[in-house]
Design a protein around this nucleic acid. Structure first.
Lengths: 200, 200
DNA sequence: GGCCGTCGATTGACTGGTCAATCAGCCAGT
DNA sequence: ACTGGCTGATTGACCAGTCAATCGACGGCC
């Protein structure tokens, strides 16, 4: 039994090490041996648990992105006002960063914003997030709470783009992390976008 | 004389070929030989004109980004209303994409959004763009035309992030290019952000 | 005009180093 | 003694960057 636990732990250990190393050096500059070293594990063990270096990143992305997708859909189902829904989505993403900045950095930098190299594979899942957000906007328009002269998909992209840019700002130190508190930033973002969506 | 012209042409030829190949395959997946082949030029000639593969991308980025920086600052100096200024900035970026989508794809995907690997080098120049936009916002607030409970840098990042996300949507086919006309998209973007910035 | 020397542009075969992925076996636990 | 998690040296492919050799334009000199 102890063996089984160890085995599961080792896999997790490799994934967690990969997060740290990818965040520090970037995916391309990371050698598989770096991951193994960081995890305190033999080189070959990485290939025991994963088919390739790509699959490690894959796993990290899918693990986290599926959480985001269900969070968005759950939020939508919960049925508050459209504005509260968008606030909840922004909140979830910002909190994801607050909770695990390294993982979010890897996902944004290496997958979401690197659609050319790696993200191409995940374009479908990424698009699904945009579309779930677009649905919230569309419902808001149907209920007359948002102006309807803005395409929902368009508003969704702008909304998500704004959040991601904000995270990028924190990640790369363009925006000082201490200066604006996360919650405040989150509120401002939602306020700005939602006020821009208000009917006139 | 004909020789000199040829020499200059060859350098340009290599840069233009690099745009096409980088856009098609991504920077990392591009071999120097691919650039040479695409340019119809010998492998070694690339190294006659550029110190390294990185320098080719560098050159492409700096060439274009400096245009963006002067355009923003020029716009600011022209002194219309803040809203018109932001519209002009968004317009310039969207038009850059319309005029040369491949180059913009390379710059966004390989530099701007890849700050981890390559863009780290250019973070300063990228930040300068954010700050010029932030200045426009700050002036607008001082003039009472924008609400002042939003940090200018924050608004700037959201604004720019929205534009870039929009371009990314076009680049990767998430948003159909034919569906929403570029100008319309540009207007909607500015409208949304500026209305969100309106005093209340 | 014809010839030659110079020099920068151009060529592409080659090298050195890097690294992902493999694989033949080791050993701990049962 | 057997199973499967685990090891890490080895291999093979790939590619950025080098370099020695060739080309060809032009100016000077006879």
């Amino acid at each position: 039994m102890a063996a089984k636990v160890t085995a599961v732990d080792k896999r997790r250990q490799i994934l967690d090490a990969a997060i740290r190393v990818f965040a520090r050096q970037g995916f391309h500059a990371t050698r598989v041996s770096d991951i193994a070293d960081e995890a305190g594990v033999a080189y070959g063990l990485v290939y025991h648990y994963f088919r390739s270096k790509d699959e490690v990143l894959n796993e990290l992305f899918v693990e986290r992105w599926s959480l985001l997708l269900s969070a968005i859909e759950e939020t939508d189902r919960a049925g508050e006002t459209p504005r509260q829904k968008l606030a909840a989505v922004a909140g979830f993403i910002v909190d994801s960063y607050r909770h695990d900045p390294e993982l979010m950095k890897v996902i944004i930098v290496e997958v979401t914003r690197a659609a050319n190299s790696f993200g191409q594979t995940h374009l479908e899942e990424i698009r699904r997030a945009y579309q779930s957000i677009a649905k919230i906007v569309a419902d808001g328009q149907a209920a007359g709470e948002f102006r309807d002269d803005v395409s929902p998909m368009f508003a969704s992209m702008t909304f998500y783009g704004g959040i991601e840019q904000l995270l990028s700002g924190w990640i790369f130190g363009v925006i000082p992390t201490s200066d604006i508190d996360f919650d405040e930033a989150k509120d401002l973002l939602v306020t700005m976008i939602c006020d821009g969506l208000e009917p006139r």
